[in-house]
């Protein structure tokens, strides 16, 4: 007679007990580590110096004087601005310091990263301005001021005001503080481009009160969901000859 070992399964209680012991042992073996967690090998992780002010997806700071929206801006435009911060043609000390050590290739990757972010626009707080000022802002954005040879915003930035690929930025989803600050910067040459630079010309033709009106009206718009810069081919009217972006939409 052969003796066969009884093929009995372990009692359920033993299994549970064993599992419990193993688990607690495993837990005890996991050190309560003070070490930094592993670092994701992603561009998102690399650019925290950008996103801490511009939002985790480049959606912009909710603070009117915080970092402006970058998400969805044309990559060519973003890259050009990063290069201007490096060369000092555009001045803002914190940005100049942050971009200082980066190579053209890395800047391009960062520009493309923010350009492809797809995050809803949001409306930002607008200082209380009168209806009259809002109407003046709307007038300027849609029709310009022929008496001062100020073109309408939408004649270059597009009928939807969301810009064109690859260089023309949109002007919606930006704060009142940011827009007005940029228009002033064009006038004071702390924001410049390779000359002749159209925005410098336009900003210098505007009244100070008009800068306020345009900024308030633009910041007060609620951009529809899913708005993006239009492809360069969507442009129906040529840009003014003196515009730095040129009729091709590319910086000459």
């Amino acid at each position: 007679m052969t003796i066969s070992a009884p093929r009995r399964s372990l009692p359920r209680a033993v299994v549970v007990l064993l599992a419990f012991c193993l688990c607690t042992a495993a837990l005890a073996a996991t050190p309560q580590s003070d070490a930094a967690p592993p670092v994701p090998d992603t561009l998102q992780q690399r650019v925290v110096a950008c996103t801490s002010c511009h939002g985790s997806q480049g959606e912009g700071s909710p603070d009117s004087l915080g970092g402006p929206r970058l998400a969805g801006k044309p990559a060519g435009y973003l890259l050009q601005q990063l290069a201007y911060f490096q060369s000092g043609q555009r001045q803002h000390a914190p940005m100049e310091y942050v971009v200082r050590q980066l190579s053209p290739a890395y800047l391009r990757q960062i520009a493309e990263y923010f350009a492809k972010q797809d995050v809803p626009y949001r409306k930002l707080a607008v200082p209380a301005v009168s209806e009259e000022i809002m109407r003046r802002g709307e007038e300027l954005v849609l029709h310009g001021d022929p008496s001062r040879a100020v073109p309408a915003c939408d004649s270059c930035h597009g009928a939807r005001l969301t810009g064109f690929e690859p260089m023309m930025p949109g002007v919606l989803g930006l704060s009142y503080g940011y827009i007005s600050q940029q228009l002033v910067s064009w006038r004071t040459h702390t924001r410049a481009a390779e000359g002749p630079y159209c925005m410098g010309v336009v900003a210098n033709r505007m009244r100070e009160s008009d800068i306020n009106a345009v900024s308030a009206w633009l910041a007060n718009q609620t951009p529809p969901v899913g708005m993006h810069p239009q492809p360069a081919s969507a442009r129906t009217e040529p840009l003014p000859g003196w515009c730095v972006m040129g009729s091709s939409g590319v910086t000459p």
């Binding site: 561009l43 925290v48 942050v98 980066l102 890395y106």
Partner: peptide, 19 residues
């Protein structure tokens, strides 16, 4: 100030620190 370590041939895409 935060900022990036320098982008070099040996480390072309450095990580960064928020300001």
């Amino acid at each position: 100030l935060g900022g990036f370590a320098p982008a070099t041939a040996g480390y072309p895409m450095p990580y960064s620190m928020p300001p």
